[in-house]
Design a protein around this nucleic acid. Sequence first.
DNA 1: CGGCATCCGGGAAGATACTG
DNA 2: CAGTATCTTCCCGGATGCCG
Lengths: 236, 236
Amino acid sequence: MTKASSSPRKQYNEGCIAAHALDFLGDRWALLVIRELLLGPKRFSLIRSGLPGISANILTQRLKELETSGLIVHQLLPPPASVQIYALTILGHQVRPVIGALCRFGAQLPGHDPLLHISPTALMLSMTEMFVPCGAKEVSIAFNLGAEQFLATANASGFAPVRTHAPTAQLNFSGKANDLAATIYGPRPLSRSVADGIITFHGDLEIGQAFVDLFSLKHRALDGLDYLEATVSHAP
Amino acid sequence: MTKASSSPRKQYNEGCIAAHALDFLGDRWALLVIRELLLGPKRFSLIRSGLPGISANILTQRLKELETSGLIVHQLLPPPASVQIYALTILGHQVRPVIGALCRFGAQLPGHDPLLHISPTALMLSMTEMFVPCGAKEVSIAFNLGAEQFLATANASGFAPVRTHAPTAQLNFSGKANDLAATIYGPRPLSRSVADGIITFHGDLEIGQAFVDLFSLKHRALDGLDYLEATVSHAP
DNA sequence: CGGCATCCGGGAAGATACTG
DNA sequence: CAGTATCTTCCCGGATGCCG
């Protein structure tokens, strides 16, 4: 029983529990599908828009497999809405530390290009992992990233985003996820991004800049190796 | 540059750093190859014997890709030995938290069969993740698992195995990794396993049993869901 | 339009046999 | 022992079309 029937793919038949976890999460796209749902349920299309390059049939297949694995559920919202949504189960939410570990490892790898497409949810999760708490003051931040909005708090214990609708807070960022990523990940100061009008910011600019500077990835922007070189040689 | 040339496989072209990490680790077998090397360098055959089911050509391919990614190195030992070994780089060792997160997630999943093949290294890593420190007394443990031997310490800060040759300690376990796993993961008491002669144990039996009981997976033996049901309903 | 099935081409994984 | 070569199988990704 469990997930024997319609076993979708080759499994590692190992007693190792890490290998057993990969039997559930090892398929291509599987972990990224979970990632898209970690901050709240979504419809098929919204999941897909966060996963550039995935085919509709592959997404259908992954969703079905993850459902039979017990990691997600497929629900039909009551009549006024009458739309189908996909949500993580309690078990599904337990993969968050796996995503977190991947983020922290990925931050050390060369070749990362922050200009590539990033989904709002992926950005929020990345920021959560890269946040370095500093100081005891708590700040509330609202992100309006098009189809998804988040309200977050940043304090000494971390950065915690929650998906909501039309949030407002001390600091307010609006724009496309990719442009926000360029501000968070890249060396671009906050004031310039406001001047560029790519993302719009409302709130205390000084606090906003201090907040943006709390994300460690900022300091090793484009390439882990470049970062090492830069800190050693101070060359252009 | 970086790893552009001979890009071995489809990459997720995303700005998400977790997806970027999966560009390095997402291939089938890749994470398990890293796992086999986490506790020390190995030869091709020893890696392969820890990965039941992998083909020689696939292992060759993965090793080559992981080397160009900068996660492992391929060395030739000096003349008296003159054998080739594969070792993790510093960067490669950073994937350990990813394996750890997978272990802790896998421990919550249903369908785990501790009777399936497990490699000595995988067992040591699983035990490291599943260990629940209890009490302040430090114990040293030696494991003789055939081709691989480990010396470990268990104290309030965790369980830490190191690969060595012919170790001896307060507690000494000898036998096949799978049989040790049955004792650690399963409900079988230590005394019986000694009586069975499947694994042999030397040392204080009481301390040995207390040590074995420190691994949390033991209590949810065969099936995560069964475990949940049992704690809620106490029904058959 | 959102969700899902079917068909097809390319390529990765798996099994086997062979070589230095 | 440490791979390489070849063949087969099947997964992935793209396109198309059905259905609510």
